[in-house]
Each structure stands twice: as structure tokens, then as C-alpha cells.
Design a protein around this nucleic acid. Structure first.
Lengths: 220, 220
DNA sequence: AATTATTTTTAGAGTTGTCTAAAAATATTT
DNA sequence: AAATATTTTTAGACAACTCTAAAAATAATT
């Protein structure tokens, strides 16, 4: 039996090893998990014994095939629940994460399969991240950060990185929300600020803002 | 902060003290929770310290107002999730309980309120048990057991007590399912068996069956 | 290459919830 | 009412996960 804590460690290791090959170090895990390095070492040993991770002392961890399977399954559940919360229960983008963090640990294959069907097999979550299918296959990532968007292209806003209330208020006062359509007019080389055309206005946003806004290409 | 285990103990104490006044004894809790009496004693002490239960050594427990509030809230969540699973995710009556047992512990007021609204404020769960509202008020129980049904009255099947696969197979082979309409034709005083009129057949079921089948009155 | 700094691991201990075995209180029989 | 049986509690221990403090390994500096 796999415990809730083990699942959370596996998920963290997965997210920290982006390409899937990179070994993950103890301190990085400790920081994400809000715990101490010594606790991480203990848990890594346990995951290694249970064959979810490969681990050599002082050399960092990688997930085994088993570990990766567990991680992808949790991500699948997390993102399906996020779709459910946003589409059916009127949650906004900044409210879903915390609740999905708990729902993702409910263990029932039927529940996941039926939820998937009920939502009509979504392939992206409300933040634009791909939802792996039952076999663990991801669609290519569609979301890009505004800071890397192309001039002349039109995008739809699909999420934010920073969810601090200050940032969300800033977006609100500038009439930017989930689904807002914007065209990139100009990127200023000097300070990397970005000029945008919204539906009823043109605005300039700073680089800090551009780094935190996620978009999906619509045309261009 | 209340733990998952504490919530489960509180729920068990609530269910064992039906009328709300009766004190619950240690062994009864141990049996339901599949644990040892000594563990129960430990937990009862903790619940008492946290003011969820009143407890005097060797005298059994009762829930405090706080404890009862926690219990009713868990029951509310459990039954709302059961409605969701049956109505939206095609779960059958015998499959819902286990999953709802986990979902009931997810803590988010918004989640519960929105789920309630999404399901259009149901007042009974798929087994015919009332769903308490936000303030903890229950509607009167509508379900009765077939053994206590009246001759000449028509009922709808809304659940079972025993969920063993043998019993469910028996029901299946006799064309009884959730929603099946039946009229009580006769109750045999000798062995308490019951004669029923189903849509396309008349059958006689034994007292053991009649004790395990829950109905809701439709007319009569 | 030697020293210093950083990262990681070990050792020992605390917490929560569980257990067994024995003691204490209550209930039941005779 | 005394003896016996049952229920409940205590005492001490264990497993999972966490921590602090110190030791060991690795990495960075000089």
C-alpha cells in the first residue's frame, strides 16, 4: 500500500525532474515539501526500498518506471478534478489547486474513469496543462508565458503562475481574466515590457507581469 | 486541526448513538472501527480533550455540540458525494459507499456548497437517507425496510442493507434493482415471507431478504 | 591541493495512532 | 454477597513520519 505522504514525495520528485532523466537533490525536495532535508532522506530510502525510486547516497534520486506511473496517475487525477471544479462547480483558476491537491489522492479507478467520461475526456486542464490519458500519454503543451509570446500573434489567457492576491487584483483592474483575448503589439527590448491589444483597450504590462501570465495561441 | 482518524471516530460515535442521547461504549466503537478497545480509549480521551466528546471513565461517551456538528457535516458530505456518484458518474448503490468514505473528508466549504447546488440541493441520498442542510437539519426519514412494509401499498426500491455479492446476485436474478417498483401483496405470518407484485411477475421473498431491502412509499 | 562552505546523511528523539498484556472497574451468576 | 465473567483502562512498546544536532560526503574557493 502506498501512503499519502509517499504519493506527495513521488509527485514532487516527478515535477522537479522535468525531462524525466535529471536526478533530483534532497534540498530541492525539502523546499517544495516544506520539510527538512533529513526527513527527505528518510523518505527517499523508503521509496527506494519500495521500488518507486532509484537512489545512491549523496547522488540524488530519480523515479523508477513504477514511480513515474504513480506520479502521472496523480497528475491525471489532479487535472481532471481541476476541470471538474472549474467547469461544473464554478471555481476560479486560483481556487482549484488547493482542493485538487486533496482530491488527487482518492483511490478509485472507476471514479477517475467515470469522471473523465463525465467531463468528456478533456485533454487540457484550466491552466492549459495537458491531462495524461489512462496510459500516461500527454498531449504537447500548448501554454506559453506572455514573456515569450510572439509579436503580432493573438492569444487567450489560460492561467497565471503567481496567484498572490495583489497580482490577481492587478489583473482584475486591467480587465484581464481567464479567457481574455489579447494580441501582442510590441515587446520593448529595454525593459522587456509588453504592449497588448485587449478588446477595448491597449495596455503595457511590465516584465514581471509578462513572466506570470500564461497564454494559448489562437491565431497569427 | 482535526485529523482524519478523529473524524472517523466522531462519525462512528454519532452513528452508534442514534437518538443522540445514548452513551456509546468502547467495545462497540472498537468493533465498528475494526480496532482494539485500548486504541478506542486513547482516542476518546483525545476527543474529550479537544471538546468533541464528553467522557467519564468506564461510563461511555457522548458527543458534545461541537462533536455533533462535525459528525453531521461529514454525513452531509458523504451523502452529497453519493448522490454525485450515482447520478453523474454511473455508480451503482453498492459501489458508492467506499469512495464516499474517502471523499467525505475533503475539507472545503466552497466545494460542498457548490456540489450541493450542482446536484440541485438533494434532500435524500441514493439509499433514501436524508441529507442534512448547511445548518444540520435533517428531513424525516422516508425509507422503510420491506419487512415492515404494509400490505396493499406500492413502493420503490431505494437500497439494501447487506451488500454482499450473493445478496446482490439474488436481487439481480429476481429482477430487483434500484428504482424497481413493487406492491406488497401478502405477508405470511408463519415465516414472515413476503409476496410481491413486480412489473412482470409475482414473487415471494424470505424474511432474510425482506429485512435487507429498503423501500420508499409511492402510493397506497 | 588545502581550506571552507554546502549538501546530505546519521543518530537519537518526539508525535500520532496502533498494539499486547496486565490491572482495575463494572456486570452477571450462583 | 461472593465468585466469576466482561468491559474498560493503563502501561509499555512499535510503526510511520517528523524534527534537531552532529557527522560525513561533496562542491566551491583560495
Amino acid at each position: 500500500m502506498i501512503t499519502l505522504t509517499e504519493e506527495n514525495y513521488i509527485k514532487t520528485i516527478y515535477h522537479l525532474s522535468t525531462n524525466g532523466e535529471k536526478t533530483v537533490n534532497t534540498n530541492a525536495i525539502a523546499e517544495v515539501m516544506q520539510t527538512k532535508a533529513s526527513s527527505v532522506t528518510d523518505m527517499i530510502k523508503k521509496l527506494s526500498e519500495k521500488n518507486y525510486a532509484d537512489y545512491k547516497k549523496y547522488q540524488g534520486v530519480t523515479l523508477t518506471e513504477d514511480g513515474r506511473r504513480v506520479a502521472v496517475n496523480i497528475i491525471r487525477k489532479h487535472r481532471l478534478w481541476e476541470v471538474f471544479l472549474v467547469e461544473k462547480l464554478n471555481f476560479s483558476w486560483d481556487e482549484v489547486h488547493e482542493v485538487a491537491e486533496h482530491l488527487e489522492h482518492i483511490k478509485s479507478d472507476k471514479l477517475v474513469d467515470e469522471l473523465d467520461a463525465f467531463l468528456e475526456f478533456p485533454t487540457y486542464d484550466p491552466h492549459g496543462d495537458p491531462i495524461p490519458d489512462k496510459e500516461g500519454n500527454f498531449k504537447p503543451l500548448e501554454k506559453i508565458v506572455l514573456a515569450k509570446a510572439e509579436v503580432g500573434t493573438t492569444y487567450k489567457c489560460i492561467g497565471v503562475d503567481d496567484t498572490s492576491s495583489n497580482f490577481l487584483k492587478y489583473l482584475d483592474s486591467n480587465k484581464i481574466a481567464l479567457g481574455t483575448i489579447m494580441k501582442v503589439l510590441h515587446k520593448e527590448p529595454f525593459d522587456h515590457s509588453v504592449k497588448l491589444a485587449l478588446e477595448h483597450a491597449e495596455i503595457v504590462v511590465s516584465y514581471s507581469v509578462a513572466k506570470n501570465l500564461y497564454l494559448k495561441k489562437i491565431e497569427g
